[in-house]
Simulated scan of single mutants.
Amino acid sequence: MSVAPVLDPTVRHLYVHVPFCPSICPYCDFHVLTRRAGLVEAYLAKLDEEAARLADTHDVALDTVYLGGGTPSFLRDAELSALVGSVRRHLGWGRVENTLEVNPGTVSADRAALWRDLGLDRASVGVQSLDDATLRFLGRQHDARQARDAVTTLVDTAFRVSGDLITAVPGQPLDGDIRGLVELGVGHVSAYTLTIEPGTEFARRGVTVDEDDERRGFERTEALLGEHGFTRYEISNYARPGQQSQHNLSYWHGRTYLGLGPGAAGHYPAAGGSRILTTRRTNPHLHEWLAGAAGEDDPIDAHEYVTDALFMGLRLREGLDVADLSRRSGLDVRAAYAAPINANVARGLLTLDGDRLRATPQGWWLLNRVVTDFLEASPAEQAESP
């Protein structure tokens, strides 16, 4: 039986997309572009308008703010100050965590101090590697020395620092990259396998990733970071105690969030009295966004809400609480999805302990297959009204 869903009507998380980069990396398929005269000014003016509109249309009490991109730290000091001012004026500021994505080549002691004064307290640094040859292959504009200096400066300025790594790069000294990051004092590491996306420069050049290298990187990263006190709390993310990304956890826990800026995606509570639980909205790219084009809305019903939550929640080591998911969605998840749950438990890809559903290590590796089973399920509750 379906029951009335219980969703928090207050949005507590904000993602701000800054699309500008000093250069476009050959593996990148995000909405990014290099800056041109007048473009950043137009972006900041439009961002202020959009922030005001979001404040008027949603109940907002922010716990986390995440400035991503692109390269938010590529903004000039006055520009970043204006962006933060718009967010604070219209939407408030995160009470728990406020993250800035940082390119190592943009860091100095004075800039780090300014960022802290603006209220940013966590830095996600695009290190990618601490090996110069690997960085050149990846098309990065910084070298290993700049990456080390940037992380050290941010740690010394009292940021909580996360270092990004790309793994499975041909010839990469992965052990050295991992040990080097740990020695610099980061409390968090995000390690992503090099992925060749259609339309990128790497795709046009025919670059490929060896699956055996991918699997070795997946396993070696966990083993080596584990030796240094980091726990893999999500498929691609590792943290020392208390250093998990609270903003990203909101995604993995299936919470709603605001998306601000061109290309930004938001996940919003839907109006009451509808079969639609939430709405995902994706903003258009910069030039269409500046011209006032509307975002694309994707209404999410209970079934899609549950499958999305399963896909995200099973990425976590802790998995997810199916009783809580049932309460939020209004569906009896254990009954509606008994077939895919039981089948994947039998395959050794999932475990179900009480109400706690988790992916096994092999389930993590085959998570797309697991989620496909849930997507293909047709629970009877879909046909019932809440």
Rank of each mutant, 00 (worst) to 15 (best):
M1Q: 15
P5C: 07
V6D: 15
V6K: 09
L7N: 10
Y15P: 04
Y15H: 06
V16R: 06
F20E: 08
F20M: 05
S23Q: 08
Y27C: 13
F30V: 07
Y43K: 03
D48A: 09
D48E: 15
D48P: 14
L54S: 06
H58N: 10
T64I: 04
G68S: 03
G69N: 03
S73P: 02
G85N: 05
G85P: 14
R89S: 13
H90I: 04
N98L: 01
G105D: 07
T106M: 07
A112M: 06
A113Q: 15
R116V: 01
D117T: 14
L118T: 02
L120S: 02
D121F: 00
R122F: 02
A123L: 03
V125N: 02
S129Q: 00
L130V: 00
T134V: 09
R136V: 09
G139Q: 01
R140S: 04
R140C: 02
Q141G: 15
H142E: 06
A147G: 05
A150R: 01
A150F: 01
D156W: 09
V161C: 04
G163Q: 00
V169R: 03
Q172E: 13
L174Q: 07
D177Q: 03
L181V: 06
L184F: 10
S190Y: 00
T193H: 10
T193W: 07
E197D: 08
G199I: 11
F202M: 12
R204D: 15
R205C: 07
D210M: 03
E211N: 04
E214C: 09
R215K: 10
R215H: 12
R216M: 14
R216I: 13
R216W: 11
E219H: 05
E227P: 08
G229P: 13
F230H: 12
T231R: 13
T231V: 15
E234F: 00
A239P: 06
G242C: 04
Q244E: 15
Q244T: 13
L249M: 12
T256P: 09
Y257F: 03
L258A: 05
G261N: 02
G263V: 12
G263M: 11
A265W: 03
G266N: 10
G266Q: 10
Y268A: 10
A270G: 09
A270H: 10
A271W: 09
S274R: 01
I276R: 06
T278H: 11
T282I: 12
T282S: 01
P284D: 08
H287C: 08
A291Y: 07
G292Q: 02
G292V: 10
D298C: 11
D301Y: 02
Y305K: 04
A309V: 09
L316V: 00
L316Q: 03
L316D: 02
R317P: 03
L320G: 06
V322G: 01
V322I: 14
A323Q: 12
A323H: 11
S326K: 11
V333F: 00
Y337A: 08
A338L: 12
A339T: 13
A339P: 06
P340K: 08
N344V: 00
A346P: 10
R347C: 04
L349P: 00
G354K: 02
D355Q: 08
L357N: 00
L357E: 05
L357P: 01
R358D: 08
W365Y: 14
R369S: 13
A377Q: 11
A377I: 10
A380M: 12
